[in-house]
Design a protein around this nucleic acid. Sequence first.
DNA 1: TTGTATGCGTTATCAA
DNA 2: TTGATAACGCATACAA
Lengths: 353, 353
Amino acid sequence: MALSRSSSFTNDKIVNKSNKRITIVDIAKELAVSPSLVSMVLSGNGKKNRISEKASKRVTETAKRMGYNPNLLARALRTGKTGVLGLIVADISNPFFATLARLIENEASRYGYGVMFASSDEEAEKFNKIGNVFITKQVDGLIIVPVKESMEIISEWHSRNIPIVSIDRYYESLNIPYVVSDNFDASYTMIKYLRKKGHNKIAFIVRNTNISNFKERECGFLACANHLSLSSEQFHVFKLDNDNWKKELQIIIDKILTEGFDVIFFGQNMLGVEGLRILNKLKIQIPDNLGVISFDNSDVFEFNKPRITCFEQPLKKLAETTLVYLTNIIDDKIDDKQTYAKFKGRLIIRESC
Amino acid sequence: MALSRSSSFTNDKIVNKSNKRITIVDIAKELAVSPSLVSMVLSGNGKKNRISEKASKRVTETAKRMGYNPNLLARALRTGKTGVLGLIVADISNPFFATLARLIENEASRYGYGVMFASSDEEAEKFNKIGNVFITKQVDGLIIVPVKESMEIISEWHSRNIPIVSIDRYYESLNIPYVVSDNFDASYTMIKYLRKKGHNKIAFIVRNTNISNFKERECGFLACANHLSLSSEQFHVFKLDNDNWKKELQIIIDKILTEGFDVIFFGQNMLGVEGLRILNKLKIQIPDNLGVISFDNSDVFEFNKPRITCFEQPLKKLAETTLVYLTNIIDDKIDDKQTYAKFKGRLIIRESC
DNA sequence: TTGTATGCGTTATCAA
DNA sequence: TTGATAACGCATACAA
C-alpha cells in the first residue's frame, strides 16, 4: 500500500503539501462562479435563494468530483450551530442511564445531531462543571438529568438561553421543559398491588433528596397509604443520604428485617440492585420471609432467583419526546414555558412479591 | 449566592442584554493593547511569547472582570483542535460498553477532552457512517471498537491521518495502536480451570467472525484443548452468525443439551446473558446438569442462581492506556506504528462450574 | 438569478 | 516585548 504512488490515499502526505483541503472557494474558482453561490447550493439553501437547477447541479457535481467536505467548524462558527447535543446523566455505566443514552443517541441521530455525554455522579459540582464545558463547546442543546442542589445551576444556564430539556427528573419552578415518567402513579400502582397481594407492613426505601422523581415516588407511596387508610405501623419511609448510601442501606435493611416488615419497596434501580445484593448475602428467603419490589427494570431483576417484581419506565417514549422538545426549542418552534410530558410505565409482575 | 449583586452569576442577565459576547478584541480595546497580545496571554502562550508579567496579569484580570469566555469554535477553526474525542462502541446500552465508556469518559476528562459516542450495533455500515460523522465534526481522535468487515474503513481513516486507537479488538495488519485484553490467555486459563474441575465435554460458543477478540478466544480454547490432549469428542466450537444470533443460540443450546456436553463456555458477555436466559427458561440445573462459564463479568452473573463463573477484563487499564496512546498520537509524541498493549484479566470463580 | 463584501473569534506570522 | 494583519472556511445582507 505504501508503495503505490498513484493512489490518493498513499499520497496523502505528498498531496497534502500541494493540496490543502478543498473549500467552496476552490469549487467556485473551478466553475468560475462566486463562492456565495456555491455556499448556497452546498448548504442546502439553493432553492431558498432561487439558484437555477442547472447551476445547482453543476456545483454539487464538481463538489463531489473534487472531494469536497464542508468544514463544520467554520460553518458552526458562522451559524452558531454545532450539530452536537450535550447529555448529562448521573452515571453512564448505570444500565438505566446507559439504556436511556442509547435511545437518545438513536433519536438524536434521526435529527442529525451527535451527542456528547458526561456523568455527574449525582454531584452538583460535577454537574455544573460538565454543563459548562458543554456550553463552552457550544452544544446546540442540553439534555439533563438534574441532581440534588442543581436548580440554580440549571436556572443560570436557562437564563443564558441555552436550549435545555430535563429528563427523568425536573424542577417544577423552573420554566424548563421536562419529560418524565409519572412517578406518583407508579408508586401508587405498586402499593395498590402490594396491598392486593396482602402485604401488611411495607418499607419504602428512597433517597433523601428533593429531586422530583424520588419525591413523587414518596408522595405516591404516602398518598396511596393514606387512601387505603393504612395505619402508621403498616408502612414506613426510610431515607438514604447520598454520601455513603451503601452503608446506610445495609443498616436500614437490618432494621427492616428486625422490625418485621413483610415487604421492601426499593425506590430506585440502584437501590434495588444493591439492596438485593445485601439480602442475598444475608440469605433472606424471598418472597417467603420478605417480599421485594423495585422501581425500574433491570437484567438483575430478571435473573435473580426469585425474579423481582418491578415497575418499568417508558424509556423510549421519554427519549423520543425529549428530542421533539429539544429540537423544537433549538429551532425556535415552541415557547419553552410549561412544556412537559409525563408518561405512565408498567408494572412487571414476577415472583418476588 | 443568588442574593449577592456582585456575583457574576446574578448579573449575567443584565450583562447579556446590552452586551454581546465578550471577545479578545473587546479586552484589547479596554486595555488599549492589541488583540494578539490578549490572545497570546489567554491561550496560555504568554510565557512562550515572552509577554511581560505585568501585561499578562492585566489581561487575565480584565478578562475575568469582563466575563470573557473563549469561543472554542473560533479557536478550533484556527487551530484545528476541537477538544473532542469520538467513541464508537458496539452498543452503549450493553453494560460492558457502558462501563468502558464511563472509564474512558473519566480518563478523557483528565486530559481535557470531551467525548462523543455512538453505537455501531456491530454493523460495518453504521460504523462507517458514525466514524465519518465524527471525522466531519473534526474530533481530535477516535477510540473505536472495530466490527466485522471494518478493516478497510479503519484503514481509510488511518490513511487520512486521523488519530485512532482501537480498543477491545484490533486488526493485526493495520498499523493502528490497540489496547486489548489477552483473550488467548483468558480462554486458556478458563479451559484449564474447567479441566481441573473435571469437565470432560466442553461446548464453546462464540461469534463467527474474524474480529480479533473472538478469534483469539477461540484460538486460546483450541490451543489449550490441544495442549491438554483433549480428543475431538471432548470439545466443540459452536459459531454464531451475527444476524439472528439469538435464534441460533437457542438451537445450538438445544443441540448441546442433547449431545451431552457437561459445560458451556460462552465466549462473550451478551452470549452469556442471553444463553443463561435460555437455560433458565428450560429450567436446566446448573451446575448439576450443566456447568456454565462466560467471558466478561456482569451483574447478571452475580445475581443469577447459581452465580456464574466468569473471566473479567481489566477495563480500567484498557481505558487508561487507550487515552495515553491517543493523546500521544494527537500530540505527535509517538510513532503510531506497532504500539499496543495487552492486559491480562482475572478468573472469578463462582458456583456455576 | 448571481456576485461582492464583510464578519464570526481566534491564532500565527512577521515586522516593529 | 508588542502590534498589525492575514488567514481559518463559511454564510449572509445587500448590491447588481
